[in-house]
Design a protein around this nucleic acid. Structure first.
Length: 423
RNA sequence: AGAGAGGUGGCCGAGUGGUCGAAGGCGCACGCCUGGAAAGCGUGUAAACGGCAACGUUUCGAGGGUUCGAAUCCCUUCCUCUCUACCA
C-alpha cells in the first residue's frame, strides 16, 4: 500500500510511473488525495470538538473538588451538545478513513525506472542467458513421461487422495526432492540467511500484511471454520514475523530463509502449462527474505539475484534472467527479476524463481518500521525471492539430465541423494 | 474442552474514576568521570494523525457501553499463561 503523504507529494511522477503497468492511475490518485483532504478536515473538526469537551471536563472536575457542585452541574449541561457533535464527526471520519483505505488498496506499487514497458510476459526483458542447452539422445522424453517410466512421481495417486495438482513423490523422486530442499537451505544459511520454520496456515491480518488480501483472496485455500488461509508462499508467514515491529537501525538487515509447502488454487489455469509438474496446487519452495534499510534495498536485490545465480550454476542448469515489464510486474513489487530454466524436452523456459523489491509497499501495511540514525521512525524495505521453487527445478533436472540408461544426478546433489542415477 | 489468572511504552513492570501518556527498572542517546574502556553519576528518551510551528487529538489487546470525565467500572470478542482433561 502506498503512503498517502507520498501520493500527495509525488502525484504526477507516480501517475507517470504507473503508466508502465498500463494503468491510468491519475483519477485514482486524485480521488485518494481528495478523500484524504476530507479526512483531514474532519479530523481537525473532531479534534477541536474533543479539545473543548476535554477542557470542560477538567473544569467540572476542579469545581467538584473545590466543593462548587452547583457550578459544576451547570457546566455539565454544556457538554451534551459537544458529545453529540463529536459522535457525528467521528462517524463521518471513519467513513472517510475507510474510503481512503479502499482506494489505496487498489493502487499497485510504483515500478522503478529500470522496469521496461510492456503488456505481458512476452515483453519481459531478457537480461542474460547462462549455461548451455544439452543435446539429448533420440527419444528423450518430457518429465511427465520420465516420472512414470522410473515410478518416482505419481499424479494418478495424488488424484485419488486429493485431486489434480497434488502429486505423490515416490522413492528416488521423494529423496531427490528432499535433497533439493536440504541443498537449497544449506546454500541459503551458508550465505547468512537465518533458517525459519513457520506455520503453513495464516490469519487474515497476515494476508493483508503481505498484500494477498483483499484482492487475491480467490487464489488461496481458505479454512472457514477457523478463519485461516493456507499459505500460497512462505513469504506470507516469514515476512509477518516482523509485522508491527519497530526495529533499531542496528538490527538491519534482517535476512531469513525457510522451506514451506505452498498452496495455490490456480483457478482458471489450464492447457499445456499445467502439464506434469509445471503448475500444481501444492508444491514446495525455499524462500529468501530480507528486511533492509531503504538505502540498501537496491543493493540487496542485486545480491539476492547473484545468490540465486550461484545455485543454478552449481546445478548446471541452463537458465536466463528476465526483468519483468510493467504489465507483468506483481501488484506489490517495484522491480522483479525472474529466473527461468530451459526444459530441453519440453523446449520451453520454466520460471523457477522470482526476486522482488517491495520497498515500503508491504512494510506500510505491516507497520514494519525502524528507528533511523536521526532517531526518527521510518518504514523499512522488504524483499524476497525463491531459492528455489522445487517442482520445475525437478522437472528441469529430470529432462536435462536424462540419458538412455537413466537420469543422472547433478554433482552437488549426489551427497544429498545418496545415489547418482535414477534408473 | 473445563476452571482460574492475565494482556500497559523498544523491552520488563507499577498503577482500581479526574493531578496518568502513565511510577520504577532495562535498553538507547548525550554529558561528567577515565590514558582508553567498563562501572558509577547526571540529563534526556512512546507512537500515530493534523499543524510551518506553538500546540491539539488519539492510543494501556480489539470492539461496544456507563460517566461531565475510563488504563481503572460493565458487556462482547481475540490472544497468552497456570491447573485439570485429552492427545501427535
Amino acid at each position: 500500500m502506498l503512503q498517502i503523504a507520498a501520493i500527495r507529494e509525488h502525484k504526477d511522477a507516480f501517475a507517470q510511473a504507473l503508466k508502465k503497468r498500463n494503468l491510468d492511475a491519475m483519477p485514482l490518485l486524485e480521488n485518494a488525495i481528495s478523500v484524504d483532504e476530507k479526512r483531514r478536515t474532519l479530523q481537525g473538526q473532531l479534534d477541536e470538538t474533543l479539545a473543548e469537551s476535554n477542557k470542560l471536563s477538567k473544569q467540572i472536575g476542579d469545581l467538584f473538588k473545590s466543593g462548587k457542585a452547583a457550578q459544576a452541574n451547570e457546566l455539565k449541561v454544556q457538554t451534551g451538545d459537544l458529545k453529540e457533535k463529536s459522535k457525528q464527526l467521528n462517524v463521518e471520519l471513519n467513513v472517510a478513513i475507510e474510503e481512503l483505505q479502499n482506494i489505496l488498496y487498489t493502487i499497485p506499487n510504483i515500478p522503478q525506472d529500470s522496469v521496461p514497458t510492456g503488456n505481458s510476459d512476452e515483453d519481459n526483458e531478457v537480461i542474460s542467458e547462462h549455461g548451455s542447452i544439452p543435446t539429448l539422445h533420440a527419444g528423450a522424453k518430457p518429465h511427465w513421461e520420465l516420472v512414470k517410466d522410473y515410478d518416482i512421481i505419481d499424479f494418478e495417486l495424488g488424484n485419488k487422495i486429493t485431486g489434480a495438482g497434488f502429486p505423490v513423490y515416490k522413492r528416488k523422486g521423494a529423496r531427490l526432492q528432499r535433497a533439493l530442499i536440504n541443498y537449497f537451505l544449506d546454500k541459503n544459511t551458508g550465505a547468512g540467511y537465518e533458517e525459519m520454520q513457520v506455520p503453513h496456515l495464516v490469519n487474515e491480518a497476515s494476508g493483508y500484511g503481505t498484500g494477498q488480501l483483499p484482492d487475491k483472496e480467490g487464489q488461496m485455500y481458505y479454512v472457514g471454520v477457523d478463519d485461516l488461509y493456507l499459505i500460497p508462499t512462505g513469504e506470507v508467514p516469514i515476512t509477518n514475523i516482523y509485522r508491527g515491529d519497530l526495529l533499531e537501525n542496528k538490527d538491519l538487515p534482517i535476512t531469513m530463509t525457510g522451506y514451506t509447502p505452498c498452496f495455490r488454487r490456480e483457478a482458471g489455469s489450464y492447457g499445456s502449462d499445467v502439464r506434469g509438474l509445471n503448475r500444481l496446487h501444492q508444491f514446495d519452495k525455499v524462500e529468501i527474505l530480507r528486511i533492509e534499510h531503504p538505502d540498501q534495498s537496491d543493493a540487496a536485490l542485486d545480491s539476492m539475484v547473484a545468490h540465486v545465480k550461484g545455485i543454478l550454476e552449481e546445478l548446471e542448469l541452463p537458465y536466463r534472467i528476465l526483468r519483468l515489464c510493467g504489465g507483468d510486474l506483481g501488484f506489490t513489487s517495484t522491480l522483479t527479476y525472474d529466473f527461468e530454466i530451459y526444459s530441453t524436452a519440453q523446449e520451453k523456459w520454466l520460471e523457477v524463481s522470482s526476486v522482488s523489491n517491495f520497498k515500503t509497499f508491504q512494510s506500510n501495511r505491516l507497520k514494519l518500521r525502524f528507528r533511523n540514525s536521526e532517531g526518527k521512525t521510518e518504514l523499512a524495505h522488504t524483499l524476497n525471492g525463491s531459492s528455489l521453487a522445487l517442482p520445475r527445478i525437478l522437472a528441469g533436472i529430470l529432462e536435462n539430465y536424462q540419458t538412455e540408461s537413466g537420469i543422472k544426478i547433478p554433482e552437488v546433489l549426489k551427497p544429498y541423494c545418496g545415489f547418482d542415477i535414477i534408473d
